[in-house]
């Protein structure tokens, strides 16, 4: 078993109104960053889990996103394996 670190990035689906992103966009403009075209606000979940392989770890995280972590109506997600610690876990 290897302990993998994963990052799950959840973001609002394109075309969906993101009021929080819009408010931040306004704030950036009023601070002088007029070059900012669009702001979208999502979230990142950091997970550590034990799995037999990197692919198995990513597959488990994808299943978690489908079942609970992301809402397919409003959100897209990406799973990235960011680290592995051999021999960890039991």
């Amino acid at each position: 078993m290897t302990r993998y670190s994963l990052e799950i990035r959840i973001k609002p689906r394109p075309g969906l109104l993101d009021p929080e992103g819009k408010a931040i966009h306004h704030a950036l403009h009023s601070l002088g960053w007029g070059e900012v075209d669009e702001v979208r606000v999502g979230k990142v979940l950091y997970l550590d889990l034990d799995a037999d392989s990197e692919a198995a770890a990513a597959e488990a995280a994808t299943a978690m996103c489908r079942k609970l972590l992301a809402n397919p109506v409003t959100e897209d997600f990406e799973v990235a394996v960011t680290g592995a610690l051999e021999g960890a876990g039991s």
Binding site: L17, P19, E20, A23, V73
Partner: peptide
Amino acid sequence: LCESGLLPGALVRNDVL
């Protein structure tokens, strides 16, 4: 009910924040 799939769609942040 929306999250459970009994009703379609989702309820997101109010546009007025």
